[in-house]
Design a protein around this nucleic acid. Structure first.
Lengths: 339, 339
DNA sequence: TTGTAGGCGTTATCAC
DNA sequence: GTGATAACGCCTACAA
């Protein structure tokens, strides 16, 4: 693949490269005929400007980087839709990479994004990421970064998060109000702060109502259906089936439901369940799953707006954290306990 | 953000830029002390090599572009996982963009990928894409491109597709064998060739068994849950509920099931259903959905291998089409009709 | 209106 | 070992 350059065109047409260059950037004056001649010839020769060379001069790429841990669950795809909504109309391209929940991969993504000269970065940290020096450095250098959903307190960047604490509390209180007492929390990866927040919310609700909430009431499961399945199998084997379950997200809840049903437990009569995130699956599963609705697409939009501000601002604005609220969607899986 | 360059380092250290450059690329001979001095100073000054400048000289970026129509359904995310598996161990970065089922957007993605100098491109066409001149041109210029799943016959590139015709035929025959006669096909966007293939498979099966298969046996629905819902609502309203349904994919099937159940129809007793793609939801819905399993991750891996071949080959290999086979997963939604 | 020439940040090929 | 210097492809003062 031999690329045609403006030099080639200039040579063929016996004009200078400057003239050719000007013919393409119409802010300069070029005689109409020569311009047309050049454009015509360029097309004929199959010329395409080399964007790399251009980028060497200009300083922005109109590319935005997005790094997410995974997109098997629909959560991140939905956030990305919001991100795209904002950037597309501003003529930015959105480049997506996935870290696969792996810190090493995330670092590679990060470096690669910088190499490709994105103008800004939206990132949701991987499960493994305890601390990212590289990202910290980037932020220190005033590179525009906005964290969303999976954030780290150590990073001095703008953040968009969900009020996980509050809505975990509400979700748990909902079960309590429905008459359940022995409630268990199936949590996700413990080093994620949002998971910790949900745990805190769960504990707070239990304490507030004087219910037992020891170590055996919180079980680490995961965030995928299989995680919920495995954990529930284990709980059933060891005879630790509670009256109700608050799961850290819908897939985990659904995995648990699947196993419970398989073992003949009735939901919600034997075990009531509440999920988190209100995915499409919540409506499909039977009985339909009570869940906390999160404004996913909005999260993307807001994060995008924050980033845009940073990119266009003269002086770097000080970091802000925006906390989004949700909504409890009550369905059959958490119907009132029979007395 | 002022970038530090090798010039700055050279100036400060009173050496030439050449020496600084050499210190970083250790294939040249530099005195140990000077190298260490330079590296040390570089770190101190916060120097980062400018990859754009580098790319101007070298010719490849070690970036691979992937363009998909959407990733709300889990199909494409799973394919991407396969793609990543192959490229990561080869030290390529995978850049993902989504066209949002929109031809205009897809074109922007395409241009942007080229601008970012990806070494090769994996693409699944948007629903709207009838014909992409830009892509055609790219392929003509021997730019490495592999199409997967959503392909176009007009493009002379390598392709990885699923044997939609055959497995749609099998899925339909399965319903016929179970004793159903009045079978309807809920299809997807008609201008996608894979959708046409599934329609052909459905028709063939019906004809083969002497069953009626007129225009009213094939209804265009879509590929999302909502599409299945809307279509089923319409069918129920107009009193056109068949004995069995073969849906173009799982979400459509599940949407239809949801509405059928809401209206009191029993599955499979009143209406049997078969889906396509075997998504996670198929196991979760009740009754569990019979579906065609597709090797999604494998599709990604194979497409990636094909692309890698093209990228590394001296002379462009002639395009190949690889057709993947699937598997019928029988569950309750298609149990035998009662006589 | 057009041409000349310098520069963007890096690497590679000469010399010394 | 190291320093000039010419590329890479494009843009843009400045001159003409």
């Amino acid at each position: 693949m031999q690329y045609i350059t403006i030099k080639d065109i200039a040579r063929v047409l016996n004009v200078s490269v400057a003239t050719v260059s000007r013919a393409f950037n119409d802010k300069y004056d070029v005689k109409k005929e020569t311009r047309e001649l050049i454009l015509q010839k360029a097309r004929e020769m199959g010329y395409k400007p080399n964007p790399i060379a251009r980028k060497l001069l200009q300083k922005h790429s109109y590319n935005i980087g997005v790094i997410v841990p995974e997109f098997i669950n629909s959560f991140f795809p939905q956030v990305i839709i919001g991100i795209q909504q904002v950037f597309l109309e501003r003529n930015y391209q959105v480049i997506i990479m996935q870290s696969n929940e792996c810190a090493e991969m995330e670092l590679k993504n990060l470096i690669s994004m910088e190499n490709n000269m994105v103008d800004g970065l939206l990132i949701s940290l991987s499960r493994e990421t305890q601390h990212s020096e590289y990202l910290e450095q980037l932020i220190k250098e005033n590179f525009p970064v906005v964290l969303f959903n999976r954030v780290s307190e150590n990073l001095a960047a703008s953040k968009v998060v969900f009020n996980d604490y509050k809505w975990a509390l509400f979700a748990t209180e909902h079960l309590i109000e429905q008459g359940y007492r022995n409630i268990m929390h199936l949590s996700g990866p413990l080093n994620l702060s949002l998971i910790q927040d949900r745990i805190r919310g769960f504990k707070k609700a239990m304490e507030k109502h004087g219910l037992p909430c020891g170590a055996d009431h919180i079980v680490e499961a995961g965030i995928f259906i299989e995680d919920g399945e495995k954990t529930m199998e284990r709980l059933i084997e060891t005879g630790r089936v509670p009256e109700a379950i608050f799961a850290t997200n819908d897939p985990t809840a659904i995995g648990a439901m699947k196993v419970l049903k398989k073992h003949g437990f009735k939901i919600p009569q034997d075990v009531a369940i509440v999920g988190f995130s209100n995915t499409q699956m919540a409506e499909i599963v039977e009985p339909a799953l009570t869940s906390i609705e999160q404004p996913t697409t909005e999260m993307g939009r807001i994060a995008a707006e924050l980033l845009l501000e940073q990119i266009t601002a003269e002086t770097p604005p000080s970091p802000r954290t925006i906390t989004l609220e949700g909504k409890l969607i009550v369905r059959e899986s958490s119907e009132k306990a029979k007395k």
